[in-house]
Structures are given as C-alpha cells and as structure tokens.
Simulated scan of single mutants.
Amino acid sequence: MKNVGEARGTAKGAPQEELAAGLRSDRSTRNRVARSILDHGPSTVAALAERLGLTQAAVRRHLDALVSDDVVEAREQRVYGARTRGRPAKVFALTDCGRDAFDQSYDKLAADALRWIAEREGGQEAVAAFARARLAAQAGAYREAIEAAAPEERTEALAKALSVDGYAATARSAPVGEQLCQHHCPVAHVAEQFPQLCEAETEVFSQLLGTHVQRLATIAHGDGVCTTFIPKAAHAAQASQISQNDQQDHTASASTAGRNPA
C-alpha cells in the first residue's frame, strides 16, 4: 500500500506528464502544418486539413499559434482569371521567419564564397580582410550603443546591441573584469571552417571597448557559448604596462646581445 506522500506525488505528477506530452504533440503537429505549407505553398484551412488528416477546427487552432509566433501569416488567395462571386478564400503562407526555421543552404553558400575568395583573391589573409570589413560595417550601431552608456555599463550595452543582431548576448561580472557571453552565433557553421570570422569579431570588441579582450570560448570551436573576457580598466592598464615592459626588455636584450660585459 502506498503512503500518503507517494499517493500525492503520483496525483501531482500524472497531470504534469500529460501536459508535457500534450505540448510535445502540439509542437509536432504545428511543425507538420508549417511543413505542409512549405511543400505546397499558401494553403487554405480546408486543404491543410485534407492533406494532414485533421479537422478544420484543429488546423485553425494550430494556425492561430503559428501566426502568434510569426511563422505563418494570413492573406487573401490570389485568383487568376475571372473572379467568382463572394470573398476570396483566406490562405496561410510562411513568413520570412517561418522559412528561416527550416533548413537553408545559406551556410554552404557563405562557406563556398569564402573559399572562392581564399583561392582567387589572396589566400587566408583575403578572408581575414573580408571578415574585418564585415564586422566594421556592423560596428557603427555597436559603437553608438557603447558611447551612449556609462563606462561601467559599456559591456552590457554591447551585449544588448549584439542581441539585436541575433547573438543572444549577455554580460556578467567575473574576477577582475567582465564576461561577454553570446549564446547564439548566426555564422557558427561557417566560422568552424574560417576562424577569421571569430578573430575579427574579437578585434572589433577590443576596439569598441578600448581595451585588450580575450576570447575564452567559441561556439564554432564546439563550446556551448562564445565567451569573451573583458578586464577592468585598472587590470587592463596593468597588463598593457607589463606588455610594454616586456617589449622594452626584449629590445634591450637584443641590442646588447653578443657584447662582452664591461
């Protein structure tokens, strides 16, 4: 015989499991509805119901959810030739957002283009030049956001500006600095083959924030998040001074190399 705690757990858990299963089923059916529209073009509720073996009421329910998510949109059906009497039937078509949810060949196209640049226009340095030019074109909006923020809020301002471009970025505190985390990378698959894209992005972050930054992880390299470390001003100045001292020591050593001690 089950005790009271076990009985309560069962009573509470069963509806949750049923709800989760129902949500998975809804998502699966909505994907089928969207896929049918992709395969057959703008479709009426009746046509979708017939193709998918669903009731029209069920199709309307899923279409309402897809419209709410900006995956499909309703429009009047185009009529070619003489119009019949009455209002044209309403059809549902995929939005640009909805099309992007399905597999596209943009990554392959971009990788092929960069490979062509490397082969015809000067090797990997030509790819690096393209990557820097691409980021420079995007950097204007990022710079405006950073310059409008207080110094201590500039990393957060950059994160928000990156999020507008689809990088889902956040900023968080870290020992002696901050971390800029990009939870999504629109060019990750291409950057796997051409790391110059990540390198150019790191250079731009450094220029925008006016300090040396360090890339700790990238999605293109297989990490879960692109993470960039941004030191606090005092630590950045210290690191810069150490670098300058090392360079001076190296120069002095080189200039006295081979001399006999006095």
Rank of each mutant, 00 (worst) to 15 (best):
V71L: 08
V72L: 06
Q77I: 10
R78S: 04
R78I: 12
A82F: 04
A82E: 15
R83L: 11
T84G: 13
R85P: 02
G86I: 01
R87W: 07
R87L: 06
R87C: 02
R87V: 10
P88I: 08
A89R: 09
K90Y: 04
V91I: 13
V91E: 06
F92E: 01
F92K: 04
F92I: 02
F92R: 00
A93C: 12
A93K: 10
A93T: 10
L94C: 07
L94M: 07
C97F: 15
C97D: 14
G98P: 01
D100F: 06
D100Q: 14
A101F: 11
D103M: 15
D103C: 07
Q104A: 13
S105C: 11
Y106K: 13
Y106T: 12
L109Q: 10
D112P: 02
W116H: 12
I117C: 03
A118D: 04
E119C: 08
R120L: 12
R120S: 11
E121S: 14
G122Y: 06
G122C: 03
G122H: 07
G122V: 06
G123A: 03
G123T: 05
Q124C: 00
Q124W: 11
E125A: 07
A128G: 08
A128F: 09
F130K: 07
F130N: 02
A131Q: 00
A131D: 01
A131I: 00
A133L: 12
R134L: 15
A136W: 09
A136K: 14
A137Q: 15
Q138M: 15
A139C: 12
A139P: 02
A139Y: 04
G140A: 15
A141T: 10
Y142L: 08
R143N: 02
R143D: 09
E144K: 12
E144G: 07
A145L: 07
I146S: 01
E147W: 03
A148W: 00
A149S: 08
A149E: 01
A150I: 04
P151F: 10
P151A: 11
E152H: 14
E152V: 06
E153M: 09
E153C: 09
E153T: 04
R154K: 12
R154W: 03
R154A: 02
T155S: 05
T155K: 02
E156C: 05
E156F: 00
E156W: 00
A157C: 07
A157L: 01
A157R: 05
L158I: 04
K160H: 13
A161Q: 05
A161G: 07
S163V: 06
S163P: 05
S163N: 00
V164I: 13
A168C: 13
A168I: 11
A168R: 12
A169C: 07
T170H: 10
T170M: 09
A171Y: 00
A171T: 01
A171C: 07
A174K: 03
P175F: 14
P175N: 11
V176F: 15
V176A: 15
E178I: 01
